[in-house]
Design a protein around this nucleic acid. Structure first.
Length: 99
DNA sequence: CTCCTGACTCCAC
DNA sequence: TGTGGAGCCAGGA
């Protein structure tokens, strides 16, 4: 199994309504210290992917896109749909911790 | 091969 | 609480 495949599995196993940081996904995938790589992998994800990439935010509990950008709004909308964030962009990052 | 970049983190100020 | 800098490492030029 490739590193990328493990990352996909970790992603797919994040419950709806829960959030996870890049570094955490990396650790869960057995790749400690490679948070940046996770970001790159997500960036390469096909647009029609069903993986919950939007449940991944940075360690500060924020979306890792410039506020107001199209990508930012797209991710925020998903989080709002799942009740993880308010329309104002306030993210409930307490949900970040995830076993 | 080297240099630069980045959906990141940590740790000192 | 906020900033800044160093560490990190795969990819592309």
């Amino acid at each position: 199994m490739s590193d990328a495949e493990r990352v996909y599995q970790v992603l797919a196993s994040i419950p709806a309504g829960r959030l996870c940081s890049y570094g955490e996904v990396a650790r869960l995938a057995g790749l400690p210290g490679r948070a940046r790589w996770i970001g790159r992998v997500l960036g390469q994800l096909p647009k029609d992917s069903t993986l919950p990439w939007y449940r991944v935010i940075n360690n500060q509990g924020k979306i890792s896109f410039p506020e107001g950008s199209a990508a930012y709004r797209r991710q925020l909308q998903h989080l709002i749909d799942e009740g993880s964030a308010s329309p104002q962009g306030k993210i409930d990052w307490r949900q970040c911790r995830w076993p």
